[in-house]
């Protein structure tokens, strides 16, 4: 005999039901954008700039949708597997470019996003310009926020260790960090791979809660939006970019009338953040020792 609260016909109170019906998608977006903000954070935290987070997200989305629809795999297999393809691409982009300094990674990742968009548009299996429809809505809100909390906790714990100190050291002065024994290229590649994992999982969750994916969801525009999450919140702690993502996710809802100006807002926020908030809204940084 199943307890009442486990039974499938357990009903949500009417008021909450309405609330979830209206705002369920927005709540899920908060979780998914939080994950994307963390994927941006990991790269920025080692002093690199990637504009490929949307591309990694798209790889996670498309590969997971094909696993669900074509291979008929269950979601508990699809979700962890959704990071595989993004990681492969992160390695392919990261290995040659991370040896070079500065903007090469940023440029290469922009290129990656555009190449993939052309691929989704022109290869039949990805559905072309129409994208892929009828994706089963398997990503539950608890999964999305479960992944977000897991990612936050993991980044927080790793941040407060020799790895977190090494990352901050690299961000401040990569040469001095190397002299301290930090494997700078290794950490840079590791951060890019970790960010691809987070973005891939976010892409999978996002695709499996919206029933549709298309090639334009993962282009340059969303890449800049993801960057603005981290720029607004800051990168002093992993919490900061998530807060930035939540503000930028809620803001368009509050300013519904100005939805045409959404990109203008994002651009403005990047400019203001860079000029006046070099450490983001949440400027405090975590202490890098555990004992």
């Amino acid at each position: 005999m199943m307890p009442a609260w486990l039974a499938s016909d357990w009903t949500i109170p009417a008021g909450l039901d309405d609330f979830l019906w209206t705002y369920g998608h927005l709540i899920n977006s908060l979780g998914i954008n939080g994950l994307l903000a963390l994927s941006m954070y990991v790269v920025l935290a080692v002093g690199q700039l990637s504009l490929g987070q949307a591309a990694f997200m798209g790889l996670g989305a498309y590969s997971s949708v094909l696993m669900t629809l074509t291979l008929k795999l269950p979601f508990y297999v699809v979700l962890p597997a959704s990071c595989l393809v993004p990681v492969l691409f992160a390695l392919a982009v990261g290995v040659p470019t991370l040896r070079l300094s500065g903007v090469y990674l940023a440029i290469a990742t922009i290129g990656l996003g555009e190449v993939l968009r052309a691929l989704y548009l022109n290869v039949d299996v990805f559905g072309g310009a129409l994208g892929i429809n009828g994706i089963p809505e398997r990503a539950q809100t608890w999964m999305i926020f479960g992944m977000l909390i897991l990612a936050l906790l993991g980044l927080w714990l790793v941040g407060r260790s020799r790895i977190g100190r090494a990352m901050e050291a690299m961000r401040e002065d990569a040469t001095a960090a190397a002299v301290m024994g930090v494997n700078v290229p290794g950490y840079q590649l590791g951060a890019l791979v970790a960010s691809a994992v987070l973005a891939g999982i976010a892409g999978c969750l996002s695709a499996h809660q919206s029933s549709f994916i298309g090639p334009n969801e993962y282009g340059f525009e969303p890449a800049v939006t993801i960057l603005s999450f981290a720029l607004l919140g800051g990168i002093g702690t992993p919490v900061a970019p998530v807060v930035g993502a939540w503000i930028l996710t809620l803001l368009p809802e509050l300013l519904r009338g100005f939805s045409d100006l959404r990109l203008v807002f994002n651009g403005l926020i990047i400019v203001v953040a860079v000029l006046f908030l070099p450490h983001g809204l949440l400027g405090w940084r975590m202490r890098r020792r555990a004992a």
């Binding site: 901050e168 050291a169 401040e172 040469t175 001095a176 202490r287 890098r288 020792r289």
Partner: peptide
């Protein structure tokens, strides 16, 4: 070339 934003101990 110290890490200016970190504490002395860090």
């Amino acid at each position: 070339r110290i890490f200016g934003e970190m504490s002395v101990l860090e």
